[in-house]
Design a protein around this nucleic acid. Structure first.
Lengths: 197, 197, 197, 197
DNA sequence: TATGAATGAGTTTTCATTCAT
DNA sequence: TATGAATGAAAACTCATTCAT
């Protein structure tokens, strides 16, 4: 499947010289890192500096920084959708669901930018992808619930909202998150979702 | 107890004309709403527009928008601390804890701005208050755990991070949150925190 | 002669109540003081505060603060002109000239605002008055020179420029001006202007 | 000696592109002109317009307009100090002093901005330099007075204040200064300072 | 009438985007 | 082609002036 990034970079991506291709890759990596660390209000200068290229190079390869961020978010959402679809094929329904939840979190689902994108502020690029993800999560939850592993009194929307907030921030109440804080958080949430044995 | 907002507005708040008082109240309400919806990087123009006043009015009453936001956040944090302290006095430890969690969520604990403030971006006004809240939550969790109501394998930091993320956004995956979505979310999380019967 | 201030205040000055008249006088005095201490960029709020009245009162009595400052400057210039004219009637030409120079300085001729006004930035209100002052100074210098008291190699323009800069600032090179610094300054300048005995 | 301007522009001044260097020079020249004509409260927009560059260019090269103005004033003051020190080495004390006075004036000592800076409104950058200048002038005057060339009844403070005001404005009383007006002014003042032969 | 609250144009500064080198 | 210099729209904040109380 063509990714949003492919589509974004296609115009200049066909017969790209080696150094040019390297610059594009650096820019994408720098934008991902900046998105995680700084959030959506990262500056173009910051991304260019992280990539080790000039501002002009950024604009030669990309229509705008916002377009790049949107493409990154879009692809992350597509990846989540793919995970949700695959999770339905797991031998054990609950194990598959729990693995999906872990992957979802590891995709840094609640990174500042993605959180906003999932919440509806993603623009025309991400909107349809969010819808596909919603349907995939809905199907997954139906599937797992049919197996009796998820409490019957929660629905796919509950699961979506619980997962949407399941990733802890780096700091809260002045405490730094442990490296495995997200896993501890998720364990609690999954325990709350699981049907009583 | 004098609140941070009282302290901020005190200089001009004593013998205020009716229209002036109304504008101050509108500004505070507008800033609260903007904090929830937009977060800490809301603009002065946005707050003034929401309040239905001019830019100058905002600055007549307030040293700066940041000062107002900090005062609002500080008071919200103080309120949370107060709730945590009171929760320890409940007859049933778990009931008291669950009530605290509900109140915490209803204070819109995960509003964009408060989220950042609790995460450490609150400035000198809120920092010490965050510490007091952390201690109050720690004490509350110790108390509830001593009663055996919370799973023994979670600690106060886990609780803090779980609560910090317990409030669902207005929208996710293109779905609007139901009016009671926060309560449904919380029920799942609390179930995950509660010790097995 | 009707002064610029009279003209400015005439519309509201006819049948003014005692308290209203007192407020006008206070405003004029406050503006004079502020002009001396702060200069032309004094604020309306400052003048109103010094006068002990509200901002509304200032605007009820005056078209604008700038108009008041211009009127004050205009009257000061007129007063200088009057002094120059009278100086020509002195028994001793040099004594009359020196006395004029002292009065000129004591009118705080180089106060920030007046300096600018004399230099040409005074607007349509002061321009013609500056011309009258120039002619009066020119006549005075011709008169004194005819008596042989002023060096023959200086002309009225030289005198004007020397006097325009003859008033020392409050501070220079980190030193505070003595109370009689202006008199010491002037003595040196006058010595330079006087014909050798 | 490294000047304050060098220090200010050093970070970006080393390997500057031709157009960038030209813009920096234009900005410095524009700021100098604006300081002379308008004074310390010149606007960034005015300086940028005079330099023929955009607002952003000003901020790319400079931390702030105030920093540039302070550096310009600081360097001018340092130059004056240097002149005062050198003047003490002249063969003839009075000739050296008169030459210093001419140079002092040619440095546009009474330009609106420098006037304010010497008067104490220069900020932390210029304050210590003003003190050095004061000491240099004091030493120079002592030296010249020891030679008997300056009237014994004036002291270094008198000289400072006289020189501080010795430069005529471009216009006064509606008359434009002649090109050599400053020299005519200074001649009168020096005559007033010189001891009788 | 007197007050000072409200307004918004203007100022400093930042940053996405374009363009000369 | 890559660079970073230049631009100007946008944001916080001030202050002259108007207007409700």
């Amino acid at each position: 499947m063509e990714t949003a990034l492919d589509a974004l970079l296609a115009p200049s991506g066909t017969g790209l010289r080696a150094d040019a291709r390297r610059n594009v890759e650096r820019l994408v990596a720098a934008a991902r890192a900046a998105l995680d660390e700084v959030g959506l209000d990262v500056t173009t200068r910051d991304v260019a500096r992280r990539a080790g290229v000039g501002l002009g190079t950024l604009y030669r390869r990309l229509p705008s920084l916002d377009a790049l961020l949107a493409a990154i978010l879009a692809d992350t959402i597509d990846e989540m959708t793919e995970l949700a679809v695959r999770a339905r094929g797991a031998d054990d329904a609950w194990t598959g669901f729990a693995a999906f939840a872990e992957d979802f979190v590891q995709l840094r689902a609640s990174s500042c930018g993605l959180h906003a994108a999932l919440g509806g502020g993603g623009g025309p690029e991400v909107e349809p992808r969010v819808e596909r993800l919603r349907e995939a999560v809905r199907e997954l939850v139906r599937h797992v619930q049919a197996s009796g592993a998820i409490r019957p009194d929660v629905d796919s929307q509950d699961v979506a909202f619980v997962l949407a907030t399941a990733i802890p921030p780096d700091h809260t109440l002045g405490m730094a998150a442990r490296p495995d804080q997200w896993r501890r958080n998720l364990a609690i949430v999954l325990d709350g979702l699981r049907a009583q044995a």
